Computed example of a mutant assay.
Amino acid sequence: MTLPVTPPAASRGRLVRAPLIAAAAGVGALALLHLRDPHVEGAYGFCPFLVLTGQPCPGCGGLRAMNLLTRGDVAGAVSSNLFAVSLVLVASVAWLVWFLRRARAIPAPYLTWSARTVTFAALAVVAFGIVRLTPWGAWLAP
């Protein structure tokens, strides 16, 4: 008769590795957006949405918003893309929860995503993209 073998517990360093790598990637992306200004036309190539529709896309507004956030201009960032600024706040809190769980040696996944959560998030992105192109949502567009 053999006894079941339990796997060894992961060290805290190993547990916090993924949150720290994610943070480094986020800081790297923000550094790129700080150094290469998306307000300059053509800085990141062309926007297919803008070319096809003549309307500024939420993604371009998100790039401009992150650039302005890295420069400390919160009001300008909110006026460029309120949704992106809100998303940064939500992502920061989610990252902090993930990091703290891992630092306390709780091998929890990043977040558990239900189908309802994913559907709600997708609908929120689509709704923002549509509403900002309407007369009553024009204040959401840059």
Rank of each mutant, 00 (worst) to 15 (best):
W136H: 10
G62Q: 08
A138N: 12
V118F: 02
F83Y: 13
W95C: 03
P58F: 01
H39P: 01
A91N: 09
T119S: 05
T53N: 07
V51I: 15
T134V: 08
D73G: 08
P135M: 08
L69C: 02
V88H: 05
R12K: 13
T112N: 11
V51G: 07
M66C: 15
P107V: 05
L33E: 00
T2F: 12
P38F: 02
A65H: 00
Y110N: 03
W95Y: 10
A65E: 02
A84Q: 02
A10H: 14
A94I: 01
S11H: 11
F83G: 01
G129H: 05
Y110A: 10
W95G: 05
G45E: 14
Y110S: 09
H39A: 14
R64E: 12
D73I: 07
S92C: 15
S79N: 12
G76Y: 09
R12H: 03
W95I: 05
P109M: 13
L3Y: 11
R116S: 02
V90W: 05
A31Y: 11
G42V: 10
V27C: 11
L140R: 01
F46P: 05
L20Y: 06
W95D: 06
A24D: 13
P8M: 09
S11V: 10
I21E: 05
S92E: 00
F49D: 04
F120W: 14
V125N: 03
G59V: 09
A124K: 01
G76V: 12
A138Y: 09
L100H: 09
L69K: 03
V40L: 12
A25N: 01
V97Q: 00
G45Q: 12
G13F: 09
V131Q: 10
T70G: 15
G59A: 15
A77T: 03
L100V: 12
L100C: 07
L15D: 10
N81F: 03
A91P: 00
V85H: 02
L15I: 10
V40R: 13
V125R: 00
F83H: 03
W136C: 09
L33H: 03
A75E: 13
A84M: 09
S11M: 10
V40G: 08
C47N: 11
V88P: 01
V126C: 11
R102D: 07
P7M: 15
L3I: 11
A43V: 02
L82A: 14
G42R: 11
A94C: 11
L33F: 11
A121S: 08
L35M: 12
G45N: 14
Q55R: 14
V88L: 14
W95E: 12
A24N: 10
L63A: 07
W136T: 14
L35I: 08
T112I: 03
I106V: 13
